[in-house]
Design a protein around this nucleic acid. Structure first.
Length: 355
DNA sequence: GCACCCCGTCTCCACTCATC
DNA sequence: GATGAGTGGAGACGGGGTGC
């Protein structure tokens, strides 16, 4: 189904069209003077090296000048290292003005075609895979999942082209949740089905009334939103060790800002499960204090480790907060879900009008 | 060393369907 | 009816791995 048109995107496409026409006009001279057989061959000689000259998976690039600069820096570096294809490109660039002009227009066009992918923050490969849930009911959430050699992995080259906001409701609806080491997925036909699975399977299994309550608030919030697909998915039971069967720690919830990729953990920490000491009738005061210290150390180490390994800061809510989960959700969690896309730094409409 | 296969990159083109 | 956004397939090149 076609989406509503974006005037800035239309302007960008008109600029791309103009660049294509200029490239077409230059092509006969480039092919004649370089001896390259065809347009396809010429484009492949330039384009197939993109991933080597720049870091397509991680670099965030906001202008064609920056893209061309990085590309040429990568080309120079590879030619100095003795790469034959790069040496060939450098010699063509230095000796042939037709080729030089073609290359500059080509790179500019390539940047504009892939502007959406290159200008957004993208998750690194190791942060494109999340495992959630309990020991025998765990699921994987990937950006571009594919099953290969008996396990799930991301299709690396497609991570940057992913069209939904990373770790949003739209993301989960599009990829589903994968079953570890089996070529099976839990897929959701619509939003209602996803939210029911979220509250009644993923969260209810945790056995925490507070988590269940917060999950209900979240589901209501998503249902009432004008644009539910763009809302960050509130990831439940985020596993510290990923797919490993024996888990070390889990976070109650984790929210990722789809634009900045900043992660925030939410830990509901009532005294009854995180501090209360049972069966202490025969223990001395010293032994009781040691037990309490162990509990405290465990909790604090968990949050330090989540930050060190996964870059997650955690907000910890105790009994006084949990007395009113509705208030907690509205005041503390909802603002993390109401994220807005930063204004695009380049206005293609302005470029088209004046340049 | 060579041939082959697979994967990852790119562009072009044909197609569908919403919007102008 | 024309145009444009989005998608998927085809075909190009380059690199790495493998087998002979």
């Amino acid at each position: 189904m076609a989406k509503k048109r974006d005037p800035d995107k239309s302007a960008r496409n008109r600029i791309i069209k103009d660049l294509k026409e200029r490239l077409k006009a230059l092509q006969p001279d480039v092919l004649r003077t370089t001896g390259i057989r065809s347009e396809l061959s010429l484009n492949a000689i330039i384009g197939s090296k993109n991933d080597e000259y720049l870091d397509l998976k991680n670099d965030v690039i906001n202008s064609d000048a920056e893209f061309i600069n990085k590309w040429l820096s990568g080309l120079k570096k590879m030619s100095q290292l003795g790469d034959d294809a790069a040496i060939r490109l450098v010699s063509l660039l230095r000796a042939n003005n037709f080729f030089k002009n073609y290359l500059m227009l080509y790179l500019k066009r390539s940047f504009l075609i892939h502007f959406d992918e290159l200008s957004k923050k993208r998750p690194s490969l190791d942060k494109s895979e999340i495992w959630i849930g309990q020991e025998n009911a765990n699921y994987g959430l990937f950006v571009t999942p594919r099953f290969k050699d008996g396990k799930w992995e991301n299709d690396k080259s497609e991570i940057r082209a992913f069209s939904y906001g990373y770790w949003t409701i739209g993301h989960v609806l599009s990829t589903g949740l994968v079953i570890p080491n089996k070529n099976k997925k839990i897929e959701f036909k619509d939003l209602d089905q996803l939210l029911i699975f979220f509250t009644e399977t993923l969260v209810r299994n945790s056995g925490s009334q507070y988590e269940y309550d917060i999950a209900d608030q979240y589901a209501e919030f998503v249902k009432n939103s004008d644009n539910p697909l763009n809302i960050p998915f509130m990831i439940p039971e985020f596993r510290y060790l990923g797919i490993e069967k024996k888990h070390k720690y889990r976070l109650d919830f984790m929210i990722t800002n789809p634009y900045t990729l900043e992660r925030v953990g939410i830990e509901l920490s009532p005294w009854s499960t995180h501090g209360y000491l049972s069966k202490i009738g025969d223990l001395t005061q010293k032994e009781i204090n040691e037990m309490a210290l162990d509990n405290f150390e465990y909790e604090m180490t968990k949050h330090k480790n989540f930050f060190k390994r996964h870059g997650i800061f955690s907000l910890i809510y105790t009994d006084s907060d949990l007395k009113d989960c509705k208030k907690l959700f509205k005041e503390d969690i909802q603002p993390l879900l109401e994220v807005e896309q930063p204004v695009t730094q380049i206005s293609f409409s302005i470029m088209e009008e004046f340049l």
